[in-house]
Every structure is written in C-alpha cells, then in structure tokens.
Design a binder for these strands. Structure first.
Lengths: 160, 160
DNA sequence: CGACGATATCTTGACGTCAAGATAATATCG
DNA sequence: CGATATTATCTTGACGTCAAGATATCGTCG
C-alpha cells in the first residue's frame, strides 16, 4: 500500500465508473521520474551543471573529436525545441564551456564546439553521473533491472 | 537498436572506462517520460487544463464531498513546492474552478474548494484521462503492464 | 499570561521550457 | 537566372517551477 495505492482507492470510491487499471503504473512512473530527476540534478548541481546543460555537453563529448556539432544535430538528440536549444547554448557559452564557431559550409548555420574547460567538466561530470545512476537503481537486482529495461524499451518503441 | 542504444555505443567508444550498464535503463526512462508527458498534456489541453492544474483538481475531486482541502493537504499529494502550489491555486481561481475560503479553525490557513464548474470540468477530464492512459500503454500486454508496475513500485519504494 | 519557536501560506526573483514567428541563407525548378 | 519553397537558427512572450525568505497566526511552556 503505497502513496499511489491510496490515490487509486480514493478514485475507486468516488468514481467507480472509471477503469483505473492503467493509472497505477503511470502514477508510479511520474512520481519515480520526479524522485530520480531530483537525485540526478543534485549530482550535476555539485559541479555547476544541470541535466539540461549536461545533455548538450554530453552530446558533444560522445560525438568524439573534435567535439563539434551543429545546433540542429544537438536538437536531434535532446528532445527540446529550437528555442530551448538556443537558450542552452547561450548559457553554456556564458560559462565558457562551449563556443559558437562559423560554419564554413553554410552561412545560416553555426558549429557548437566544446572548449577545453567544457571537455574537462563534462568528463568529470559523466564519471560522477554514471556512479550516481547505479546508486539510483541499486534497489533492483540485476535481473530486475534487465527486465525493467526491456519493458521500457518496448514501450518506448511505440513513440520513436 | 533504438536511439538510446546509439547513445550508449557512442559512450562506449569514447569513454570505455565508464560502466554504463545503468545508463540505458535511465535514458529510456527519461525519453519515455517526455513522450508520455506530452501525450497526457494534449488531452488536458483540449479541455483548457494542464497536468499541473488537473493534479490539483483531481486531488480535490477524489477526496470526496465537499471537495475541499487545505493548500497543505494538496502539497502533501502533489510533490511540488509551496510557491508552486500557491501559483497553481491562483491560476485555478482565475479560471473559476476553485475558490479560496476562510478556514474557520485557523486564521493562518485557507480552504480550497472545487466550484460547481470545477467539479464538472475535472469529472469530464478524468474520464478522458483514464481512456488516454490506456491508449498510452496499449502496446504492452496485460501481464507486461503488471510486471512493469511491480518493478516501478519496488523502485519507487526506495524513495518514499 | 507572555514570549518564542513552529506552522500555513504567500511573495520574490531567477530559470528552463515551449509555440509561434522572424531572419537570413540555401536549394530547387521552370 | 530568378522566383519560391525550404532550412537553420534565433527572438519573443507566456508559463510553470523552485529556493529562500516574508508574514501572520498558533501552540506551548515557563
């Protein structure tokens, strides 16, 4: 009987006409997302980053040398709007972690490049982040983590 | 080989020192959350609501007649800060869906009450919402939904 | 009864996000 | 070649959220 069960019991009492058999799953999903999101955010905050800024730095880092991508490339991996990406890049540029370079092949476009400090910061943050990720899912046994991953993969496939 | 697998492959190539075995699960979790969140939001938007406003109306609705709770009660179920709750109530009050009443037992406090229109709107939205919830998880078989719910429950128990 | 720590709610200021639209450059096609 | 559609990025304005602190009231304990 967790928090979500209590919510379901209230709905059952007040609106017995509703089929709430999917509500528990989605309610737990949402609450879990809030908890996990906050845990992840803490680790980044200790290093002057946010999930948002790490997402951008990480995309540049894992693309390999020379650690450069266009805003359009970054958009394709991060599930945010173009306005949000502009804003994220602005913030990272102010912090000196990325740089906007002219795109020699297309004068409409720019190239976002990790600075040496950006590279250092994202590598350090990535190390801490993966450790933290393990901590967050530590209460599940390895086979449970695998089962959960498989189910999430199947459901995610509906959307992408 | 989904989007997350490609990200993992990049990390593996660039940072083979990292143990990324938890990253796939959490990456899929986050992406899924974005997709599902947007689907849910659409249903509410068609009815002039948001997930945020529905959360508040729903808490009042499922508490049963007379559909009244204090802001503190609402805070306890919704995982947001007090400032956020004040803002949510302000918006709902402007829309005429809730009303702030004096709390006769405690002059520091107020009571948030669903208006007749608020009751009608939340009942209609709840009906549409549960239907939409089923649609969102329809790609999983019943036993898979149950397995997923059980795993989320176990993981959520770590945090609450 | 009166002081003082707890409690309930609200205020403020800073961010991050989005949708819609603006701007500038490129690509296509008659 | 020139007109027109398309593309890449940025701008604008509106929200929702949070942390930190303000305000007013309550409860307790000497």
């Amino acid at each position: 009987m967790d928090h979500v069960d209590r919510i379901l019991a209230q709905w059952q009492r007040e609106r017995p006409d509703l089929d709430i058999s999917a509500m528990g799953l989605l309610g737990r999903f949402t609450r879990l997302r809030n908890h996990i999101g906050r845990e992840i955010e803490k680790t980044f905050a200790e290093r002057g980053l946010t999930s948002a800024s790490f997402d951008v730095l990480a995309a540049l880092r894992r693309s390999g040398p020379p650690f450069q991508l266009s805003p359009g490339d970054l958009l394709a991996t991060t599930m945010v709007s173009s306005g949000t990406m502009t804003n994220r890049i602005d913030q990272l540029e102010k912090q000196g972690l990325v740089q906007r370079l002219d795109n020699p092949d297309d004068r409409r476009g720019v190239i976002i490049a990790l600075t040496p400090e950006g590279l250092e910061r994202v590598d350090e943050a990535a190390t801490a982040h993966v450790t933290n990720q393990h901590r967050v899912v530590a209460s599940l046994a390895p086979d449970e983590r695998e089962a959960l991953d498989a189910l999430l993969r199947k459901l995610l496939a509906t959307f992408e």
